[in-house]
Write a protein that binds this DNA or RNA. Structure first.
Lengths: 363, 363
DNA sequence: CTGTTAGCGCGTTCAG
DNA sequence: CTGAACGCGCTAACAG
């Protein structure tokens, strides 16, 4: 590969901090009160609970607000109310497009409810989660939504519960079976089972499986589903068809290389996520293995790119955006005290679906 | 297409808000002071400016902090200092993987410096930016980094400067020529020119161009570079080779369909981003046009997936992560007052590079 | 319905 | 070097 590089230093003048005069322009609730000829408490109420203020005075206040250009200093409000209306979203790897739709769902619900998303990218290193756990301890966030399996909080093993000093936690997609936490996910075991059944219906028997990280409960479930499906097909012994991976494109490619060493090739590969399927796909092509003519390929997740592979990838879709939205909704419920272990904020299992494209053929 | 759907309602009990007792467990600076037998001012100093406290007392304080498990309430601190150590990152569309590496770069630098990222996803609708502009006005963020061309602030047209009531703004990738703002980007015109020159070197003359959003300064620059390159090749009239797009996969596909109607087909297509190139690629394949044998294809951005297309996409790469990191660094400089229009925090132009894969052939 | 009063927890004076 | 006192802007509790 050959690279053309260009570098050009640029210089532009710009709005420097010297011109940043927000502090001096700051108009506080006191000013509004003076302007409207009422007390500051009335201003506060007129803004927060308009119903509890006589329309007449409310209008006066609102006019004063408008005239002065007042915006409530939410730092002060947060300080007073001990709520800052923000939620940490802890993402294993922001560059993994799988997560972006979930984040979008979360963000949308958050914004609609006056909440903000503090983005925590772990860059696949659990150590990076600590900082965000601390954030919660310092009250910088009202809650935390975990998209991976790493929880930055300590929990009480025997009671299977979080230490009460931690704020609410919701898990999206993943979960942790050592502890009872609300969450949203699909039925991963069933989804994998459906995948194998579908391949079975297409006549496949020797179905290889590329597994995800072994310490992931979600992966264990998918693996369980795969084994169950294989058993249904009369294949109890699958160890030679099992390949390790870590959800990355590379690990999928690597698994494919290993797989091609097999004395008797499988007729289909089922990958625990699309990234690995795509990584495998590339290796297969390089080696002249045609998909799906020579070998069928089934993915998991239905990332955006799955539809644009060649051939387009048949895969199992998760309602990612909905998972995100619901997670945030649950978080809001908890924060508002609308839940309770028997209430409306319980963990949910959302439907998955098999998306048929062109990477699986009948044999 | 056929779908198998499953739904299963799940119920799990969990750590309810009832058990969330953070408030009562809260240990404040006052408690530490009492425990250490000093005043709260001393505790504050011992933590913030350890040098200004006698080692003896400092140790006492630190011990008390440890014993009590005290963490400073950053809500209170933010309120007091009027800094909350968070920066809004306004993203046109979080599901566009182009942005995720930039975000990662930003996040990394932010975290290393004790700053947080407030994620603002516009979902491609500028109206969604407002909410995040307001955030800044409410002091919920110390600054804002814009990854798109939509600035949620009002600015002074005549003076080409931001209203001083707004916090610092940094633009990554895009820019706005109506106003002087610090930013980080590549030389888009030059990059596009390099792209066309490269195609020219491979013998191409009829090179079609799929443009991005017309109101994007960045796209105007790329278009300018394309035209310049075509002029170098002796082709001043390019209007029939120009196709509109909006950076989406679909618009690339649509452009490809329009392009295939041409009486005389081009020998190469240059797309203003990879997504459109990939969209076009799919259409070309469907219509039996082989890439690069029948038609060469050049993209822009080098998104992760570009390497996994079939054929792998030749494209122009931006140092996305570096762009993000530098943007945040500039923001930090501004916030720390380390910049100034003649200082170290100026706008930068980073190098691009042509990444050669397999979608361009000689003619 | 409205005003008055009392802090929230911290940083920052200013004396000592 | 240390401590007492003040106040940031806002909301909650209570009185009127």
């Amino acid at each position: 590969m050959f690279f053309v590089k260009h570098y050009k230093a640029g210089r532009f003048s710009y709005h420097a901090s010297l011109t940043y005069r927000q502090e001096e322009l700051m108009v506080s609730i006191k000013d509004v009160a003076r302007l409207a000829g009422v007390s500051i408490a009335t201003v506060s109420r007129a803004l927060a609970e308009p119903d509890k203020v006589r329309p007449n005075t409310r209008d006066k206040v609102l006019a004063a607000v408008k005239q002065s250009g007042y915006v409530t200093n939410s730092l002060a409000r947060s300080f007073r109310t001990n709520r800052n209306h923000s939620v940490v979203v802890l993402v294993p790897d922001i560059t993994n497009s799988f997560f972006s739709n979930i984040i979008q769902g979360i963000e949308e619900v958050a914004r609609a409810n006056g909440y903000r998303i503090l983005l925590g990218d772990m860059q696949n290193d659990p150590a990076n989660a600590r900082a965000y756990g601390d954030l919660c301890a310092q009250r910088q966030a009202d809650g935390l939504i975990c998209l991976g399996r790493t929880i930055p909080f300590a929990y009480n093993r025997s009671r299977k519960t979080l230490d009460p000093k931690w704020p609410p936690l919701v898990m999206a997609c993943e979960y942790d079976d050592r502890i009872a936490i609300p969450g949203v996910r699909i039925d991963n075991e069933r989804a994998a089972l459906d995948g194998v059944r579908y391949l079975g219906e297409q006549g496949h028997r020797r179905i290889a499986y590329i597994n995800g990280p072994q310490d992931s409960p979600l992966c264990r479930d998918r693996l369980k589903g795969y084994r169950k499906g294989m058993a249904e097909l009369g294949l109890r012994k699958t160890s030679d068809l099992l390949f390790g991976g870590d959800f990355s494109l590379d690990s999928g490619a690597q698994a494919a290389r290993a797989l091609l060493q097999l004395k008797s090739l499988p007729t289909a590969i089922f990958a625990a996520n699309d990234a690995m399927a795509i990584g495998a796909l590339q290796v297969l092509k390089q080696r002249g293995v045609r998909v799906p003519d020579d070998l069928s390929l089934l993915g998991f997740d239905d990332i955006k790119f799955a539809a644009y592979c060649d051939p387009p990838l048949t895969t199992i879709a998760q309602p990612r955006r909905q998972i995100g939205a619901l997670s945030m909704q649950i978080m809001l419920d908890i924060l508002a005290g609308r839940d309770g272990s028997g209430g409306s904020g319980e963990s949910r299992v959302l439907p998955h679906e098999l998306v048929l494209r062109e990477s699986v053929a009948r044999v």
